[in-house]
């Protein structure tokens, strides 16, 4: 990843007739960076991606690639390529024809076209699938071809709109890893959209956490995880306990909760249940602030029994003023 800015969005607003949409979006994406727009369904992720791809006109603001404005160009003239959640491939064309279509439009000679397609199929490990039609492939294979088809055209910015959401969990994490590998190897700039925080954490150089058409926080996965700027981000990413006090909210990750036998901790409670989740266990504790969840290592988990009186202390926590909580 270089320091050069590949894609820049300046003060962009796009509202639909009903006033839904996105407002005052500012974003800089570096060359070779994979940035993820993360947020719940309906927060405007697709809207931003479609304005970058040229499928939506922005109401105001500008979009620049390599410092050149592109917001006035139709999709076919933009140096971007987009992959949707599904139905990307042209059903009446084979894999080979799907991949050749864009190259033909660019007047690449046949032999060269063939060479490039075969090379790309090899890269995505789909050699031998040239003659298959989309309906003869699994969803994962189709998405792989869709991404390969985009990569073949060497876009300046690759746009991915929840490309793996329709796939089952195992394939999804495998595709995620592969994508990350191509992306780093080929040094492509990617804007990735997802509502899945785990996916965002696993994949991204930086994450943009979105809420109702605006950005809440932009930062590396570690940043947004360790230092969420507000309660919304804190609740959206990872597990978080919230303790509501009169004037503020305390947010604590379960791994930062220590359980003490006796009354050494500040908050008293009773063990409710213990659940083994692999190499760690989740212990839930009833307190006057509600249920608080703690992660403890497995060897410690069986020393706590339901109903036992304990106390809790926090190794790390965040405080959010109640005034900000309107959002």
């Amino acid at each position: 990843m270089g320091e050069k800015i590949k894609l820049e969005i300046r003060n962009m607003t796009k509202l639909y007739k009903n006033n839904d949409g996105v407002r005052n979006i500012n974003l800089k994406v570096k060359e070779g960076e994979l940035i993820t727009l993360l947020g719940p369904s309906g927060c405007g992720k697709t809207t931003i991606l479609r304005t970058i791809g040229g499928f939506l006109k922005c109401d105001s603001g500008s979009i620049l690639i390599d410092r050149k404005p592109i917001e006035h160009l139709p999709p076919e003239k933009r140096p971007t390529s987009i992959v949707f959640q599904n139905y990307n491939l042209w059903p009446h064309m084979t894999v080979y024809e799907n991949m050749a279509f864009g190259l033909k439009l660019r007047k690449i000679p046949k032999a060269e076209r063939h060479r490039q397609i075969m090379e790309m199929l090899d890269l995505v490990k789909m050699t031998g699938m040239e003659k298959k039609y989309p309906n003869q492939m699994s969803g994962g294979q189709q998405q792989r071809i869709a991404i390969a088809r985009s990569l073949l055209l060497k876009p300046e910015v690759l746009l991915l709109d929840e490309p793996f959401s329709a796939l089952d969990a195992k394939i999804r994490s495998q595709m995620r890893e592969e994508l990350r590998k191509f992306q780093i190897d080929l040094n492509i700039t990617v804007v990735f959209v997802t509502h899945d925080q785990e996916e965002a954490m696993a994949l991204s150089d930086r994450i943009v956490v979105m809420n109702k058409g605006t950005f809440e926080q932009i930062g590396t996965p570690a940043d947004v995880y360790n230092n969420p700027v507000n309660k919304y981000v804190a609740g959206f990413i990872g597990d978080m306990n919230f303790i509501e006090l009169a004037d503020k909210t305390i947010a604590v990750r379960p791994e930062n909760v220590l359980i003490h036998r006796g009354t050494r901790g500040g908050i008293k409670g009773k063990i409710r249940a213990t659940m083994v989740l692999g190499h760690y266990s989740e212990v839930t504790v009833d307190t006057k602030h509600g249920i608080i969840k703690a992660f403890v290592s497995c060897e410690n988990s069986n020393i706590f029994h339901p109903g036992e009186s304990v106390s809790l202390s926090f190794t790390k926590f965040h405080e959010y003023d109640k005034k900000d909580l309107a959002s």
Binding site: P75, K77, F101, G102, L105, S150
Partner: peptide
């Protein structure tokens, strides 16, 4: 399907 076609040019 149509948008992908426009997308590739």
């Amino acid at each position: 399907v149509i948008e992908s076609a426009r997308d590739v040019g």
